[in-house]
Simulated scan of single mutants.
Amino acid sequence: MIEFNHFNFNVLDLEKSIAFYKEAIGLSVVREKDSSDGSFKIVYLGDGRTGFNLELTWMRDRKEPYNLGDEEFHLAFKTDDYDAFHKKHEEMGCICYENPSMGIYFINDPDGYWIEIVPVR
């Protein structure tokens, strides 16, 4: 047997990213790992329902934004309260792309990663 465990995003401002994912998606910290020399910190966020985690990695010496290429990759979340999340994300100003014909939209996190929001179908 094999199953999903986590997906990683490297971030510049760990606290800002944790706050964003808490407000925008409702993810909470489930565990943390600090390097012994302080050069990095890893925080795992979870939804409290599945075992899948989003791993946020912060590197102490990293100052420049990460190169996300053409932003062709993304993380997706499904929700049974699509309209409420859309309204919240509009208010947060984080919607970066909408595709009404497909019934989906994307938000940007503080580092520019795309997160797709999909209604339960």
Results as ranks from 00 to 15, higher is better:
residue 100 P to T: 04
residue 98 E to W: 00
residue 67 N to L: 05
residue 79 T to W: 02
residue 31 R to G: 13
residue 57 T to H: 05
residue 119 P to I: 01
residue 96 C to S: 14
residue 8 N to V: 13
residue 20 F to M: 13
residue 70 D to K: 08
residue 63 K to I: 05
residue 9 F to R: 06
residue 27 L to F: 15
residue 119 P to Y: 09
residue 31 R to P: 06
residue 25 I to E: 00
residue 24 A to N: 11
residue 102 M to A: 15
residue 40 F to P: 06
residue 109 D to A: 12
residue 64 E to W: 02
residue 110 P to E: 15
residue 24 A to I: 05
residue 3 E to Y: 07
residue 69 G to R: 09
residue 102 M to E: 15
residue 95 I to D: 02
residue 83 D to G: 05
residue 8 N to F: 06
residue 55 E to I: 06
residue 22 K to H: 14
residue 10 N to T: 06
residue 68 L to H: 07
residue 45 L to I: 12
residue 78 K to E: 14
residue 88 K to P: 07
residue 55 E to F: 05
residue 22 K to L: 11
residue 77 F to P: 00
residue 45 L to D: 11
residue 116 E to Y: 07
residue 66 Y to R: 06
residue 115 I to A: 06
residue 14 L to W: 09
residue 3 E to M: 04
residue 12 L to W: 09
residue 111 D to K: 03
residue 3 E to T: 09
residue 10 N to E: 09
residue 50 T to Q: 02
residue 57 T to C: 10
residue 97 Y to F: 14
residue 16 K to E: 14
residue 7 F to I: 08
residue 24 A to M: 10
residue 119 P to L: 07
residue 43 V to K: 03
residue 109 D to T: 11
residue 50 T to F: 03
residue 20 F to L: 12
residue 99 N to T: 02
residue 88 K to Y: 08
residue 46 G to E: 01
residue 45 L to A: 12
residue 36 S to K: 03
residue 52 F to M: 07
residue 69 G to Q: 08
residue 51 G to M: 07
residue 40 F to H: 14
residue 112 G to R: 00
residue 79 T to E: 03
residue 86 H to R: 15
residue 61 D to M: 10
residue 118 V to M: 00
residue 52 F to D: 05
residue 71 E to I: 02
